[in-house]
Computed example of a mutant assay.
Amino acid sequence: MRQGTFKWMKSMNKSIILNKIRKDGPISRAQIARDTNLTPPTVSSNVKELLEQSIVEEQELGESLGGRKPTMLVINNEAFTIIGVDAGPESIECIRANLAGKVLKRSKTKLQLPMDNDQFIAALKSCIASCLDSTDQVIGIGVAMHGVVDRATGTSLYAPNLGLANIPIKEQLEKEFGLEVKVENDARAMALGEYWFGNHGELASMLAVNIGSGVGAGVIIDGKLYHGATDIAGEVGHMTIDLHGEICECGNQGCLQTFVSGPAIARKATGQNLTAEQVFEQAVAGDESSIANFKAAGKALGVGLTNLIHIVNPEKIVLGGGVSKAQQFILPEVRQTIQASALTPAASATLVEISKLGDDATVIGAVTLLLVDVFELT
């Protein structure tokens, strides 16, 4: 493994030029100068450095506007790789991906619960090591971690499904691998991955909701991930839907999570000890009570999303996570509830879709944590 670095990319002009090539390539130097208001000499000198570092490469000649044909520029997606990690409550999944988010290798480690912090870190290291390649130039490692995360220190403050706290993920992984490590909440990482790689077009705002063993969300505003004043933006699973509802694991009553998460759906199922997956299988087979279970979850989710539309007013809402696979039962209820409850016709027409990235949404989001540093001004 060769260690990559993106310190040389992080000048303001390089970030502007790189992001322009990423979004609009193949593109000429002259077009970059026109679109960014940078001078042609500034563009040329920065492009020369980027070519030398191999992150940008020249492609076929473009169409002439009167002079000689311009050389077109594209991102060299194969020049560097990134490790992405989805540290879920039951397993750890790692991928090695190129700069276009293409998965080159993957590995998965089943977590043996209960476990302590050291055992969790050891499992992380093992999974990551099995994804590395000695010939790759690796930029860094992105970790999507469930629960509450301190981004500045890269610490998992509280991982409720593992029963662990204060896990020094960034510190331990940087010490082990000598690479830049970014740690983010899993739902936020998923939102970032969806925004970059979900083929949603040019959006100024988007809400991505991850519905699995819990419920979390990531909010994109003006193309940036929004964290809030105290870094808890997106904890939509703990939005109150029913003041007299079921007690949530957070201690409050009637949280959205108690209606729509996988465990909530399993608890409400007819029969004993069913998983949410088994309830889904019964619904697909035509079991009316299982279908009603998912429809009720869809209606509750629609109520929660209507609240969020009134607060955030996103252009699009993307649903991901295991529960979203029951889209044929949930999505119509979600859309009907929003249509009936939103304040204005425009709000009621807010697009709600299922993630196109599927099970890879979160781990692709983990990769994107590093791509943001490479391509954008932060």
Score class of each variant (00 low, 15 high):
residue 252 N to Q: 11
residue 271 G to E: 07
residue 273 N to P: 12
residue 255 C to Y: 09
residue 257 Q to V: 04
residue 287 D to L: 10
residue 273 N to T: 13
residue 275 T to E: 12
residue 252 N to F: 07
residue 264 A to K: 02
residue 288 E to P: 10
residue 284 V to E: 13
residue 264 A to Q: 01
residue 283 A to M: 13
residue 269 A to L: 02
residue 273 N to E: 15
residue 292 A to L: 12
residue 267 R to T: 03
residue 290 S to K: 06
residue 267 R to W: 01
residue 276 A to K: 05
residue 272 Q to G: 15
residue 279 V to A: 04
residue 287 D to P: 07
residue 284 V to R: 15
residue 279 V to Q: 06
residue 258 T to A: 04
residue 285 A to E: 12
residue 291 I to V: 15
residue 286 G to Y: 09
residue 252 N to T: 08
residue 259 F to S: 00
residue 284 V to A: 10
residue 290 S to C: 06
residue 256 L to C: 05
residue 273 N to W: 13
residue 269 A to W: 00
residue 255 C to G: 06
residue 275 T to Y: 09
residue 259 F to T: 01
residue 273 N to G: 15
residue 260 V to Y: 01
residue 274 L to A: 09
residue 262 G to T: 03
residue 253 Q to K: 11
residue 282 Q to W: 08
residue 276 A to H: 05
residue 284 V to G: 11
residue 285 A to Y: 09
residue 277 E to I: 08
residue 288 E to I: 14
residue 276 A to S: 13
residue 284 V to L: 15
residue 256 L to V: 00
residue 275 T to G: 11
residue 271 G to L: 04
residue 275 T to D: 15
residue 283 A to L: 09
residue 280 F to A: 09
residue 281 E to R: 12
residue 281 E to N: 14
residue 261 S to F: 02
residue 265 I to W: 02
residue 272 Q to R: 15
residue 278 Q to G: 11
residue 268 K to N: 04
residue 260 V to E: 04
residue 281 E to F: 07
residue 281 E to T: 11
residue 275 T to L: 11
residue 262 G to F: 00
residue 287 D to Q: 13
residue 293 N to I: 00
residue 287 D to S: 10
residue 256 L to A: 02
residue 271 G to R: 04
residue 286 G to R: 13
residue 287 D to V: 12
residue 288 E to G: 10
